[in-house]
Amino acid sequence: MIVTVLPMTNTGGYEEREVVVRLTDVRKDFGDYAALDGVSLEIGAGESVAVMGPSGSGKSTLLNMVSGLDRPTGGSVVVGGEDLTRLNEKGLALFRRRRIGMIFQFFNLLDDLPALDNIALSGQLVGLKASAARKRALELMGELGIADRKNIYPASLSGGERQRVATARALMNRPSLLLADEPTGALDSRSGDQVMQLLMDLNQLGQTLLIVTHDPRLAAQCARRVIEVADGRIARDSSVNAAVVANGAVVAGVAR
């Protein structure tokens, strides 16, 4: 289902966008502890959103809800028009393989497959033949500048290269939503910069991004919107002027 909304732009104007993610009053309890407590938000197509907050604030739980890796205790999660709370485990798996791509802090590559096969595996899951999946994977590797590393196993790749392979794997099935959980958290600054640039480029090409991060630089550079989470609630939802970065801290132009 396509919904037209009017999210704020970082220039303070309004823009019509298709809603990719809609969370309505989402709650997630772990025993007595509420990791998410009535979270509602919408993310439009082509947006790049950073979720920030201290450890234990509920950022990763929020990401798990959107990715369908976990189920909410209450509320609804609609991604790409699909209500994830109504899907069974198989439905969630099919949703993940077709609709989203995920990038993790520690890459989560399969150690026993070379880079090319790590990427192609996602394509094979949606029914591509092995040869077609490899062809597409190789194109992505070329675009990300790691084509010469196609036969290298993850253990022999640098951190930046591993994250590029993970990114290529996430993009393999042309997801409507790219989720990144601390994508630069395990990288040195140079590799981190490369990944940040990559995410920015993807967003420029229209890729919807949802990034969970502690890194204000990453949020400032890659996101147009920052959602701050504290104690399982959205504490602030603001646009950010990525151009303004001083002394390593984000100076956000708060428009709300």
Binding site: L69, E89, A93, L94, R96, L110, L125
Partner: peptide
Amino acid sequence: FRHIGVLKALGFTPNQ
């Protein structure tokens, strides 16, 4: 566990 998690995150169904 991590391996299973990765497979599931990629979209492997429980049967797979």
